[in-house]
């Protein structure tokens, strides 16, 4: 049986997605706790604060691309600059199957994979095995 991860972070502006994904994560026994942010700005500010306070950073970030205020790409660019000490695995999770988006995601070495919504239990199990190998 796979060990679950500690903190999973969801960055998405779609409450239905958040609701459903949290439920799937719970059922899949994916993590101990969630951090949820509704856009990139919110996520960035909070994560920087967490980092500076020395608190535990999330192990995995599931990052949406299309969001108001600050989108996924902008978040990535800023987050990379901060250079967090702890290793955080980032997944792009989006409905977009635009090849341009997929290509762009691949251009970031910090991005582990590109996941097309919806996030299912199977997706989460794959992430868990990646995580354990890492």
């Amino acid at each position: 049986m796979k060990t679950r991860i500690d903190i999973a972070c969801l960055v998405d502006d779609d409450p239905v997605y958040i609701f459903a994904t949290k439920k799937v994560m719970t059922m899949a026994n994916f993590c101990n706790s969630f951090l949820v942010f509704n856009n990139g700005r919110e996520a960035l500010d909070s994560l920087i604060a967490i980092m500076q306070s020395g608190a535990k950073m999330p192990d995995v970030i599931l990052l949406d691309v299309n969001m108001p205020v600050m989108d996924g790409w902008q978040f990535l660019d800023e987050f990379i600059k901060v250079k967090p000490l702890q290793k955080t695995i980032i997944y792009i999770v989006t409905s977009s199957i635009d090849p341009e988006d997929i290509q762009r995601a691949k251009s970031y070495s910090e991005v582990s994979d590109y996941i097309v919504k919806p996030v299912t239990e199977k997706t989460l199990h794959n992430i868990l095995s990646d995580f354990q190998q890492a």
């Binding site: 779609d14 239905v16 997605y17 459903a20 994904t21 439920k23 799937v24 059922m27 299309n66 989006t94 409905s95 977009s96 199957i97 635009d98 097309v116 919504k117 919806p118 996030v119 299912t120």
Partner: peptide
């Protein structure tokens, strides 16, 4: 590509849940 898929994905997952 994006919006409709998001909603459809949500409906699918919600039905399964």
């Amino acid at each position: 590509s994006h919006n409709l898929r998001s909603h459809s994905g949500n409906i699918t997952i919600l039905t399964e849940l």
